[in-house]
Amino acid sequence: MSEEATSYDASYIQVLEGLEAVRKRPGMYVGSTSERGLRHMVFEVADRAVNEVLDGRATSVDVTLTPDGGVCVNDDGPGIPIDEPGALGGSGLEALLTQMQAGAGAGSRRNVTLGFGVGPAVVNALSRRMTAEVRREGVRWVQEYARGVAAIPVTEAGTATGSGTTIAFWPDPDVFGAEEFSFDALEERFRELAFLNQGLQISLTDLRRPDDSRSVRLRFPGGARDFVAFLDGHAAMSAPMDTIAFEYEDSRMAGVMEVAFRWCSCPEERVRSFANSRPTVNGTHTVGFRNGMTAAVTVYAREQGLLTATDSDLGAERIGEGLTAVVSVKLDRPEFEGSTRGVLGNAEVHDCVERAVQDHLGRWLKEDPERAAALIDRILQGPRRD
């Protein structure tokens, strides 16, 4: 062993603090320095604005991709507090833009976390420039940053018309190179949020290419029912049944579920699941949904003599052919498995979702026997494969 190796001591340990650590290891905070990382930058800034709407303090969020490569996020809420100190001192605005949040908190059922939950301070550190405008109590306040460092203090800049907050940032090319924001990827996530939160209105506008600008306004009063129709697209034209949709609060799981589903003529299964508006790949809510579907269909088929005593129960895979569904739960205390938070682990959610789905589907089957018979026959025979 060399003398250099044996002399290793505390002096070799590099300690990075605050925003210095963010710039040194950006992937740890926004996932990557590719387009995916840029996308999470948008989510970290938009997170606060979206929750302003969900909490009833604002009516809409507007996100704009600007011609000079920046992103502008605007809301019409009351405006970030200016004079109230942050947790570590400084104005409320400056604290928000310079102090990292704890990161990836579970959040209550009433709030959503779009990105990793590290906050806009991380975005500030990874941007060559960030500007903030706050319109609050008739006064307009502004501040500007360069790579996370304040270029000017919070400054009063005249009177304000209306209220709200606008934060704009320009990613640092030293970190992200020539990567660009994907309009389609941003639209997909914002569309999900608008489907899952019926009071939310988000607009996304792309002004980067004047000859090819585009804009979408996302608001879906029908919630999960609208989401199912969107996922089905043209396949819904041949659906053998209407969409079954319900919202139900269950104190046993300290939360609320919103479920919508229907079958169509295509053979594929499309089941999308979410916990506190976060996409999930599996979990107790999805298992409960499938078990509830299986129980309702099997019980009805046996009661109507469509399955004989010697026939085995219908399996979830068989019932799922041609099924389009959205299963969303919002919990006060969500428990996720693993660091990616893609699997919901709350055990009580399984029984709550299973019982609610079985009850609602079972009721539909009994109330519309003609269409119920057609559905059961379709499941027994299998969907047509063109």
Rank of each mutant, 00 (worst) to 15 (best):
C264K: 01
F220P: 00
F220W: 07
R191V: 07
L204V: 01
F227K: 10
G223N: 03
A132I: 10
S265I: 05
A185C: 07
D174C: 13
A160D: 09
F220A: 07
E180L: 12
F176S: 04
E179V: 03
V134F: 14
R135M: 15
R270I: 15
L204I: 03
A235H: 13
L218F: 09
F169A: 12
R217D: 06
G158C: 05
S251N: 03
R136L: 07
A178C: 06
S213Y: 13
R136Y: 01
V228S: 04
P267N: 13
F169R: 06
D232G: 00
F246R: 02
F220C: 01
E188W: 08
V134Q: 08
E269V: 09
S213K: 15
E188S: 13
P173C: 15
V142D: 06
A236P: 00
D232K: 02
L200Y: 05
P221F: 02
R209V: 11
G222V: 02
Y248D: 03
G222A: 07
T243M: 14
T155L: 12
V154Y: 02
M130N: 06
R189F: 10
Q201C: 15
V154L: 15
S215V: 06
G138R: 11
V256R: 01
V134G: 09
F169E: 10
I167A: 02
I202Q: 01
A157V: 04
V228P: 00
P221V: 07
V271Y: 01
G138I: 13
P210I: 12
D212K: 14
G162R: 14
D206G: 11
A185H: 10
W170Q: 11
E180D: 11
R135F: 08
F176R: 05
L200P: 02
E268M: 12
I152D: 08
F190E: 03
F220R: 03
R252T: 00
A185W: 07
D226R: 02
V175E: 06
R219C: 13
Y145V: 14
H234C: 01
A236G: 11
D226P: 03
F183Q: 03
W141A: 11
T161E: 13
L231S: 05
D232C: 01
A160S: 15
E156M: 12
R209E: 12
T131H: 09
G164N: 02
D250Q: 11
G223L: 05
F246A: 03
E133M: 12
F169Y: 14
G158F: 03
E133D: 05
A157D: 14
H234K: 07
G162D: 10
P210M: 12
G164Y: 00
A239L: 11
S251M: 04
T166I: 15
V271K: 06
A235G: 05
A235V: 10
I202S: 00
V154E: 07
Q143Y: 02
E133Y: 01
P153K: 02
D184N: 10
D242W: 01
